[in-house]
Amino acid sequence: MSAIANPYAESVELLRVDDIEVIYDSAVLAVSGVSLTVPKGAIIALLGANGAGKSTTLKAISGLVRADRAEVSSGSIHFQGQMSTHTPPHVLVQQGIVHVLEGRHVFAHLTVEENLRSGGFVRRPSRQSLQAGLERIYTWFPRLKEKRKVQAGYTSGGEQQMVAIGRALMTNPSMVLLDEPSMGLAPLIVQEIFEIVSQLNEKEGVSFLLAEQNIPVALKHAHYGYVLETGKIVLSGTAQELLQNTALQDAYLGKKQ
């Protein structure tokens, strides 16, 4: 992967979500009429309050909705130009989409290193290439190297978030769906994690679709953002535009921080 200075220089569309609707248990309509695009090499923020539908949208993209007894009942999702609405999760991971779940979901009884390794298996790598993958993650998250032998359940919240992101990076993704990385973490750790996200984006060209309630932090690092409200996109624009938008300021920034 080459370094990309300006993500919009290429502006190749990596992901396109077209007017999707997601229904849980064939009864609860969680998301309807959501459309968005992620250009190659971009960091896109998906903003909104509790229950707005951020996680549901990400799960629709990664195919994990079905594991949650939900389905994309209309609309379509394309990844790299290919229809992916009903593709199983492991195939999507092979194609380059990986989902870092809200609440981190580390494998608590596995060591930090086993957690990271588990992300590498999907590529069926050789022993050396798996090891090289691990070293790459340890370069990004030096703290994880110190804790590599510790059960992930016994590491701090920030470290668990790093494990979750590192584990996802082990799949060699071109796009990471990152669900509320700031959740429950101290501001300093949040900053550290977002810095790494920006670096990964700049240096390795990894694209991110980032669900966040913490709007200031998200927009500081994202290029473009969408705002969700009760399952619908109500606003979108560049990070600059959104930061200056008074409606968004009043609705969220006033309440948060």
């Binding site: 990986v98 979901h105 086993e114 390794r117 996802a168």
Partner: peptide
């Protein structure tokens, strides 16, 4: 083994296992 680690991963958290491409 890789199978063993995947097995324990599934035992810990099925959704997360799916999310990293484990079948």
């Amino acid at each position: 083994t890789r199978i063993g680690i995947s097995l324990r991963a599934v035992a810990d958290d099925q959704l997360a296992a799916l999310a990293v491409g484990i079948k």
